Amino acid sequence: MADNRNAADVFWVEPQKRGVLPLDGFHLPARLARVLKSERFGITADRAFADVMAECAAPVPGRPDTWINADIVAAYRGLYARGNAHSIECWQDGKLVGGLYGVKLGAAFFGESMFTRVTDASKCALAALVARLRVGGFRLLDTQFLTEHLARFGTVEVPRAAYKVLLEGALATSGDFAALDWDVTARPTTKVSGPVSGKRIVQLLTQTS
């Protein structure tokens, strides 16, 4: 993190308790499910990583500054170029209105930041991320901290020692962030074109094993 957008350096944070959203314990509110099913947003992945980062760093009412400085932007763009960072985008009428980004290591995804410009956009992005991670065989979704907003979706705090056990297990295997983009029912499997539908996201989040 950086103290502000103009900071000349960054610093590391290792909290005593870590925010974790259990992928099998995600709570999908009924209202959010209806929003997703309405197809109000077009939801994509890795279509506009740089734009999502820029929006996450942009000033908003109540938060005039950001912890995302030029060094962080450059580092994450490099990670994205190497396939280790990813974004989820929500579009409305061709405009980017919400999204999130983070880092993938093994079968762990570390959420970094999210933004919204219209009601429910970032919530839909989070739901889409969880669905994508489930399909891709991920084992850990690290949210860094527990906030009131994230708690509504099932995020919990995990003590440092327990978190390290979860992290070690996730790093020992590999998740596929792009698995949701392939039609496994086709022979051979084919790339799905266009956004992932909200109805499909709801189906993936509510189906039982």
Rank of each mutant, 00 (worst) to 15 (best):
M1G: 15
R5G: 11
A7D: 14
F11D: 13
W12R: 07
K17R: 11
R18W: 09
G25E: 14
L28D: 06
P29V: 09
L32Q: 01
A33F: 08
A33K: 08
R40P: 11
F41H: 12
F41I: 11
T44K: 02
F49P: 01
A50V: 05
V52D: 08
C56W: 12
P59K: 05
T66G: 14
N69I: 12
V73D: 11
A74E: 13
A75P: 04
G78F: 05
L79G: 04
H86C: 12
V97E: 06
G98A: 03
G99K: 13
G106K: 02
A107K: 08
F110Q: 02
G111A: 15
S113W: 07
K123R: 13
A128P: 14
V130S: 00
R134W: 12
V135G: 01
G137E: 01
G137Q: 01
F138L: 02
R139N: 05
R139M: 11
T143V: 10
Q144M: 15
F145W: 02
E148C: 03
H149R: 04
L150C: 06
A151Y: 03
A151D: 06
T155W: 03
V156E: 13
E157F: 00
V158Q: 02
P159A: 07
P159H: 05
A161F: 06
A162T: 02
V165D: 12
A170F: 00
G175K: 05
G175D: 05
D176C: 15
T185K: 10
R187C: 13
R187W: 13
R187Y: 13
T189I: 03
T189W: 06
K191E: 11
G194F: 10
P195R: 01
V196A: 04
S197L: 04
G198M: 07
G198N: 07
R200Y: 09
V202W: 09
V202R: 08
V202D: 07
Q203L: 08
L205H: 14
L205F: 12
